[in-house]
Amino acid sequence: MTARVVMDAAEADRALQRMAHEVLEANGGVDGLVILGIPTRGVPLAERLAAAIERVEGVPVPVGQIDITMYRDDLRRHPTKALGPTRIPVELERHVVVLVDDVLFSGRTVAAALDALKDIGRPRAVQLAVLVDRGHRQLPIRADWVGKDLPTAADEHVAVALAEVDGETAVTISRPGTEGIS
């Protein structure tokens, strides 16, 4: 079995547009919002979400990124290099931080991002937006906004490709040992 496309570029764009409206509605506009992407693909998604919000409101939203490398709970088993610099465009106090990531799975990446945020500052609130929620949580973490709920088997692989990183935008699902996009 090959990888199956479950979300194409147009569907991803529509999901981000919807999420932008939901973020605005939940927060009463852009005042006090800051959007932080979790590398790697959470960063371009955060930029896309911020751009969608700006198209609706006509006001730019501060957008940055947070490197969670040293906060991961699997560093001993899988040593890794830094994912990217932390860029926080504003003081976090009095702001609502919208964390953005591509796939929500176990919840461990988001937990690491929350730990990293604690070392940076104390935002008024933290919210989570993800393009795909595939289930199988290991920690009590849930997204506030989800582009697509995608129930999966534990052994399936969900891959998000973004034009900014991969040259194309698509979400695929596959089983181990399968290759390619169909």
Rank of each mutant, 00 (worst) to 15 (best):
G28R: 10
G29L: 11
V30I: 07
D31P: 07
G32Y: 04
L36Q: 03
L36Y: 04
G37Y: 03
P39C: 02
P39G: 07
P39D: 14
T40S: 15
T40G: 13
T40Y: 15
R41C: 14
G42W: 09
G42E: 11
V43E: 01
V43A: 01
P44C: 12
L45K: 11
E47A: 05
R48K: 05
A50I: 08
A51V: 00
A51S: 09
A52N: 07
E54M: 08
R55F: 09
V56R: 15
V56C: 13
V56Y: 14
E57L: 14
G58L: 12
V59F: 11
P60Y: 08
P60W: 14
V61F: 02
P62S: 08
V63S: 10
V63Q: 03
Q65V: 01
Q65W: 03
Q65K: 08
I66Q: 06
D67A: 06
D67W: 01
I68F: 01
M70F: 15
M70K: 15
R72W: 13
D73Y: 08
D74A: 11
D74S: 05
L75Q: 01
L75G: 01
L75A: 07
R76W: 12
H78L: 09
P79T: 05
P79L: 12
P79G: 08
P79C: 10
K81H: 08
A82F: 02
G84V: 14
P85N: 14
R87Q: 06
P89S: 03
V90T: 12
V90I: 14
E91A: 12
L92F: 10
L92P: 06
L92I: 07
E93D: 09
V96L: 00
V97E: 13
V98P: 15
D101Q: 04
D102M: 09
D102N: 04
D102T: 03
D102K: 04
S106C: 01
S106A: 10
G107I: 06
T109I: 11
A113Y: 07
A113S: 10
L114H: 03
L114D: 04
D115V: 00
A116G: 05
D119H: 11
D119G: 10
I120K: 00
I120E: 14
R122M: 12
P123M: 09
P123T: 07
R124N: 12
R124V: 10
R124M: 08
A125V: 02
A125H: 04
V126D: 02
Q127F: 06
L128W: 10
L131R: 01
V132P: 00
V132Q: 07
D133R: 11
G135S: 13
H136D: 10
H136V: 06
H136F: 06
H136P: 09
R137Q: 00
L139D: 10
L139K: 08
P140W: 13
P140I: 13
I141R: 02
I141W: 07
R142K: 14
R142Y: 10
R142D: 02
D144H: 09
W145T: 00
W145D: 00
W145F: 15
K148D: 15
K148L: 15
D149K: 02
